[in-house]
Amino acid sequence: MSETVSFGYENVDASEKASRVRAVFSNVAKSYDLMNDAMSGGMHRLWKDRFVRRVKPRAGEAILDMAGGTGDIAFRMHPSGAQITVSDINPEMLTVGMERAQKRKLEGLIWSEQNAETLTFPSSSFDAYTIAFGIRNVTHIQQALGEAHRVLKRGGRFFCLEFSTTLWPGFAEVYDSYSHKLVPKLGKVLAKDEDSYRYLIESIRRFPDMPGFERMIGQAGFVQTRVEPLLGGLVAIHSGWKI
Rank of each mutant, 00 (worst) to 15 (best):
G212A: 09
G212K: 05
T225F: 13
A14D: 15
V24Q: 04
N137P: 02
M93N: 06
N36F: 04
E147S: 03
R76P: 03
F51K: 01
F75D: 01
L230P: 07
I201W: 04
R215T: 10
S112W: 15
G170Q: 05
D72C: 03
F213W: 03
P211E: 00
P91I: 05
W241M: 14
S123T: 09
T165K: 15
A144H: 04
A23P: 09
Q219N: 14
E61F: 04
G232E: 15
R150V: 11
M216K: 10
P79Y: 07
G240M: 14
K17F: 13
E16P: 11
V138I: 14
V151W: 07
H140M: 10
F207H: 02
D49W: 03
T95C: 12
G60L: 11
A14W: 09
R53M: 02
M43E: 07
I237W: 02
V189N: 08
M93A: 06
N115E: 11
M35N: 06
E61H: 04
G221Y: 12
A82G: 03
R136H: 02
K48N: 00
S80G: 07
S123E: 07
E117P: 05
T130R: 02
T95K: 15
A29W: 00
M98Y: 12
S31L: 05
I141L: 09
I89W: 03
A148F: 10
A62V: 10
N137L: 00
V223C: 15
R45V: 12
V24D: 07
L234H: 10
G187C: 12
V174K: 09
E214P: 07
S112E: 15
Q102V: 13
L190N: 08
G212R: 00
R136K: 08
R50V: 05
G8H: 11
P122K: 14
Y178V: 04
N27I: 08
S125L: 06
P57A: 03
R104W: 08
K56I: 04
D33C: 06
S125K: 06
T70Q: 07
R150T: 08
C160W: 01
A67W: 00
F158Y: 04
N90A: 04
S239W: 12
S2K: 13
F133Q: 00
E107S: 09
G42D: 12
S123R: 05
G155I: 09
R206W: 02
F121K: 01
D193L: 08
A67I: 02
V21E: 06
K192V: 10
K153A: 11
S123F: 03
A220W: 06
V28H: 01
V235M: 10
G240T: 12
S112N: 12
D193C: 10
A59K: 13
M35Y: 06
L186A: 12
M98D: 13
R154L: 10
P208Q: 06
A132Y: 01
V223T: 13
N137S: 03
K17M: 11
I131A: 02
G69S: 07
